[in-house]
């Protein structure tokens, strides 16, 4: 991948104000894409945009709660208004409480909706708002952030696992629907060292060492170098024939498929 791999293309990343989302934004910008980040708190998006611009890239920040359809429509419209096209959409945003443990029998409607609004509703609003633009692109890409928990379930946070499982179904069906338009739809299932992961491991230090032993590569992924570059690869012309897949970007963590 080079600085011209995605030259002239425009990407919109939800939850681009930190962690994996910021890593993806920086990697896409390094590959030549214009990047728009949709964030709940503008200050976090501004930080990402400043990093992109410091490296010579073009960035836009849009304040948005992706659980709200109108916010997503506005984010797409502003991205197209700024950069004249939309070729890549990455739905990375996640609800904050996804990193908290929950007993399935204690899950409430409120906790379900606070996570489902971002993960599921946001995915649908993004798909609906971006389809017309992705159709016009010669290399439309729609990428969702899944999780291996969606494959194997989670004793830790069952709502998170259920929603990410749903993302897998969403990905496969949307890919079949959009295939005739030349748009690929894929999910990546990362294992990355992010701030929420650090918070978790600080709470449960005994888990960290045991967990790290599960990685054949011996470590968790880096948001930009490992996860972000994988997204760049999916967006590249070389990966244009891959669609409807949930791709593990996890250093070999989950191998039971």
């Amino acid at each position: 991948m080079s600085a011209s791999t995605l030259a002239g293309r425009t990407a919109l990343i939800t939850g681009g104000g930190g962690g994996i989302g910021r890593g993806i934004a920086l990697a896409l910008a390094s590959a030549g894409a214009n990047v728009a980040v949709a964030v709940r708190r503008k200050t976090t998006g501004d930080e990402t945009a400043a990093l992109v611009r410091a490296e010579g890239g073009r960035a836009l920040v849009v304040e948005a709660d992706v659980a709200k359809q109108v916010d997503v429509q506005n984010a797409v419209a502003r991205t197209v208004a700024e950069f004249s096209s939309l070729d890549i959409v990455v739905h990375n945003a996640n609800a904050g409480d996804s990193a908290h443990p929950a007993a399935l029998e204690d899950v409430t409607d409120e906790s379900w909706h606070s996570q489902a609004g971002v993960t599921w509703d946001g995915a649908l609003w993004l798909a609906q708002a971006s389809l017309a633009h992705l159709k016009r692109s010669s290399a439309g890409r729609f990428i969702l952030l899944g999780s291996a928990f969606g494959l194997h379930g989670a004793g830790f946070n069952p709502v998170y696992a259920a929603l990410k499982g749903g993302v897998k179904g969403f990905t496969k069906s949307l890919a079949r629907e959009w295939g005739p338009f030349g748009i690929t739809v894929n999910a990546i299932q990362p294992a990355a060292a992010t701030e929420p992961a650090e918070v978790f491991f600080n709470q449960y230090p005994e888990v960290r060492a045991a967990f790290m032993r599960n990685f054949p590569l011996g470590r968790m992924g880096r948001p930009r170098e490992d996860i972000g570059r994988s997204v760049v690869a999916i967006c590249s012309d070389e990966f244009g024939f891959i669609t409807a897949q949930s791709i593990q970007v996890d250093g070999g963590l989950y191998t039971a498929i």
Partner: peptide
């Protein structure tokens, strides 16, 4: 395997599957 134009159904089904696995793990 997914199916075009049945986005909601396949989303729910894969979610059910993961939910069941989580129940198995917790209970």
């Amino acid at each position: 395997v997914g199916a075009g134009r049945l986005l909601g159904l396949s989303t729910v089904l894969e979610a059910q599957r993961a939910l069941v696995k989580s129940a198995a793990r917790q209970w």
